[in-house]
Design a protein around this nucleic acid. Structure first.
Length: 820
DNA sequence: TACGGGCGGGG
DNA sequence: GTGTACGCCCGTA
């Protein structure tokens, strides 16, 4: 026997000689590709026997069990043994039932469930590969050793037959080889049709490698372009390039929903072999599940990670490749090329070189995005223990669930079964009280001190031991949670499985942040930052998970106790602040906004320290800092202030806007811009008169036609086909006229229109840009009354101004410029 | 205000 | 593959 060390990247199993064989593809420590196979792992599930059942009879019945499935395969029980486990904290004795093959477990589990002595079955729906990774303690992308022998290879890489396998250290695969792919297609209309229209170009980008494949020749091509005679040839060449570049990870942007299904569709039409898998298996794609499989190569649709994890931290509203790349990389798609013209240019043999450049640039920025985000993805892979290709298509609740599945065996916990339809429905109908939000008094305030609880929900779960297994224990009935309508308590003697895990996550993150402070170089710092970020993502997801209707470890009692504790703590801070002479102006979930009044910033820090003295160990109130000014406005037609709608001036001079129209898309630029500037003038200068003068200036410019037409564009996305609308709003009317003029408009099209002068209904005066006559312009009155004035009305009404004061020249007295 | 339906993103 | 997304926004009752 010999030993090798390697980093697993992608894992699957194949049935060879009536046995399931695990295939772990990866890179050795010497950077060579390898496939480690393990023939010695057997599928199993657990059966719980009825309390009054005779164990011997049950075991005899189950051990000899054999059935034939609908497809004629023989499913049988290959062995049984009794084991001690826990179900939500309660000890149970379960029968571990081994099956002959993983794909026959569903049939076997249904049959075993029918046996009279059997109460229930557990963990009978765990994918075989995941079961293997959990039971063997193997983590993808992490240094792993195995003992065994190299064997004859039936694959594209050497095969090592393992007798044993284990993780060596937490060290990651340093530089996985990433290959990015992007296609351009013939697309004369807005509608994408994979069956009808061919692929025109395929680009690849990797470190030190770039290629564009196309099938129309032209003069003076870039040196990375390869010409072919037809679509079939570029597809064949593309598969060859994947083989030759030997990537660990293949990436694309929206590739699971576009590039891969497109490539597969076209390859099937041309009857081209798609045997890119390292075991010669074909590329598999599914539009339904939006997943792609290439055996042995990790598929990474980086768009999914952007959308699910990164987008909330981005300024841009859209998740389009160009916008995301510009913000993250500072580099976008190639400029000056409009891919909408590709089809007509292709037909006329025009500008094809520039489209190839464009195609390569897309692959390049996709590659860079994958490389930039990979450290964060790998940290999740290493925490949860599933391959990149799995992690990438999972939502937060799934990440939490598989993390719990990975951890459960350490606590001898059995995973609860997934809820059925009925159970899901019941769960969905149960609602509970959420966070506390304080109604602010409308006004302009200065020197606002902001405090917030660090990781409030996770720290409550850990500190108060909240979980389904510690709920209503027999020993701590006096430990009552601040839930208003129920008497709930959680054990204070024995730490629960979930709180223990969250406590570990919080403490690990604190340690990583501490080490980060002393990071010796930028690369190390970034890696540690990715680690602490992934730990934060995980611990912040537990609260949502406990209240998620499809969760295995669902516990509404836990979820509502968490928000009850949160309300209790935040209200306590508010109360104490007021007692100390601070003026509370706003509070939402985990933050409190105060003005100092006669107190100083030093007093604010003292206040924070005093609060922290009384909090449980893991909970902490942070002092976020002092904002020089902040504005809170009234709710529509209400006396009190609007919740979640305010603007702050940061100490660095930036304006932080929450909830205002300025951050929403279906308003014209002129309305959003005016609103932003009004907020800016008020926060920076504290002078409402100046803001009013500014609005009047904009109104005058609108009247004089001095505002550029682009700023008057209003954008609304068409939600369904135009004929399906019962009410014809302006955007629907515009869409109808666009269709009449021969444009392709369907559900999903972004309608951009302008309201022009004239008489009649707004919708009759709404036009798309191409329909404007020369010299035709926007209707000033509409933009003043329906866009600009409504956008600033609530802000200026804080200072006593009404809409009339903005549109007429009548002077107001005794108003403006006051501060609270 | 609650609820159901459909989108996103790709050329 | 021992599997079937999800969270948000819009329009309508």
């Amino acid at each position: 026997m010999v030993a090798i060390e390697f980093y697993p990247t992608e894992i699957n199993y194949r049935i060879i000689g009536r046995k399931a064989v695990i295939h772990i593809y990866g890179r050795t420590a010497n950077n060579e590709r390898v496939c480690v196979i393990d023939e010695n792992f057997q599928p199993y599930f657990y059966a719980e026997l009825k309390a009054d059942a005779d164990a011997e009879t049950a075991v005899r019945k189950i051990s000899g069990f054999e059935i034939e499935t609908r497809t004629g395969e023989k499913a049988f029980v290959a062995g049984t043994e009794f084991v001690d486990r826990k179900i939500t904290g309660k000890p149970v004795s379960l029968l571990k039932v081994f099956a002959n093959l993983p794909n026959l477990v569903p049939a076997l589990r249904e049959a075993v469930k029918e046996i009279r002595e059997v109460q229930n079955v557990y963990e009978a729906d765990i994918p075989f590969v995941r079961r293997y990774l959990i039971d063997k303690g193997v983590f993808p992308m992490t240094r792993t050793s195995c003992e065994g022998e190299f064997a004859a290879s039936h694959l594209k890489v050497p095969v090592f037959k393992a007798e044993s396998i284990k993780q060596v250290s937490e060290e990651s695969l340093a530089n996985p080889k990433i290959l990015a792919i992007d296609i351009e297609t013939y697309n004369p209309t807005l509608k994408i049709d994979m069956e009808k229209n061919p692929i025109l170009m395929i680009s690849f980008y990797s470190r030190g490698f770039k290629r564009v494949l196309t099938w129309k020749r032209f003069e003076n091509p870039e040196d990375y372009i390869e010409f072919f005679d037809n679509e079939s040839e570029i597809l064949e060449r593309a598969f060859k390039i994947i083989d030759e570049t030997q990537p660990d990870i293949i990436t694309g942007y929206f590739s699971d929903s576009f590039d891969w299904p497109y490539i597969r569709t076209r390859a099937e039409m041309h009857k081209i072999k798609m045997d890119v898998g390292l075991d010669h298996s074909a590329l598999k794609t599914s539009l339904k599940t939006e997943e792609t499989e290439i055996a042995g190569i990790s598929n990474l649709d980086i768009y999914k990670f952007v959308k699910r994890v990164v987008s909330r931290k981005l300024k841009t509203e859209s998740n389009k490749l160009n916008d995301v790349a510009r913000e993250i990389l500072g580099e976008g798609k190639s400029e000056g090329v409009d891919v909408a013209n590709l089809a007509s240019d292709w037909d006329r043999n025009r500008n094809l070189n520039s489209y190839c450049v464009y195609n390569l640039q897309d692959a390049k920025i996709t590659y860079e995005l994958a490389e930039t985000l990979l450290p964060n993805i790998i940290e999740l892979v290493k925490t949860i223990g599933l391959p990149v290709s799995d992690i990438i298509s999972m939502g937060f609740s799934q990440l939490v669930e598989w993390y719990l599945m990975r951890k459960a065996p350490e606590f001898e916990e059995i995973a609860p079964n997934k809820p059925g339809h009925g159970e899901m429905r019941t769960r969905l109908s149960q609602t509970y009280e959420g966070a506390f939000v304080y109604e602010p008094t409308p006004g302009l305030y200065k020197d606002i001190a902001v405090f917030d609880f660090r990781s409030l929900y996770p720290s409550i779960i850990a500190s108060h031991n909240i979980s389904p297994m510690t709920f209503k224990c027999e020993c701590c009935e006096d430990n009552i949670a601040p839930v208003e309508k129920a008497k709930y308590w959680f054990c204070k003697k024995k730490k629960g499985f979930i709180p223990k895990i969250i406590e570990d996550l919080i403490k690990r993150r604190m340690r990583v942040k501490e080490i980060m402070k002393g990071a010796k170089d930028e690369k190390t710092r970034k890696l540690l930052d990715a680690r602490q970020e992934s730990l934060k993502v995980m611990s912040n997801s537990f609260y949502g998970y406990l209240g998620f209707s499809a969760a295995r470890w669902y516990s509404i009692e836990s979820a509502l106790s968490i928000t009850a504790y949160a309300r209790h703590y935040i209200k306590d801070v508010i109360e104490k602040a007021e007692k100390q002479g601070f003026k509370v102006i706003y509070s939402d979930t985990d933050s409190v906004f105060l003005t100092l009044d006669s107190r100083t910033e030093k007093d604010a820090l003292k206040f924070r320290d005093a609060i922290n003295m009384e909090l449980p160990e893991l909970m902490e109130l942070d002092y976020e800092g002092m904002y020089p000014a902040g504005l809170f406005v009234a709710a529509k037609a209400k006396e009190y202030g609007a919740k979640k709608k305010y603007a702050l001036l940061t100490p660095q001079g930036f304006i932080k806007i929450k909830g205002f129209e300025a951050v929403r898309r279906n308003w014209s630029i002129i309305a959003k811009e005016t609103q932003k500037n009004v907020l800016k003038i008020i926060l920076e200068k504290g002078d409402a008169k100046k803001a009013v003068a500014y609005v009047k200036k904009i109104i005058a410019e609108l009247k004089n036609g001095e505002i550029p037409l682009e700023k008057a564009i209003i954008k609304t996305q068409l939600q369904k086909a135009v004929d399906d609308y019962a009410n014809i709003g302006p955007h629907v009317a515009v869409a109808k006229r666009m269709i009449e003029s021969g444009m392709d408009v369907s559900a999903g099209t972004m309608i951009r229109w302008i309201v022009v002068s004239g008489t009649g209904k707004i919708r009759d005066r709404s036009k798309h840009l191409e329909a404007l006559r020369p010299n035709e312009s926007y209707d000033a009155a509409y933009y003043i009354e329906n866009q600009v004035v409504p956008a600033v009305e609530s802000i200026l009404s804080v200072f006593g101004y009404s809409a009339d004061d903005l549109v007429s020249d009548r002077k107001q007295s005794n108003l403006g410029g006051f501060m609270k």
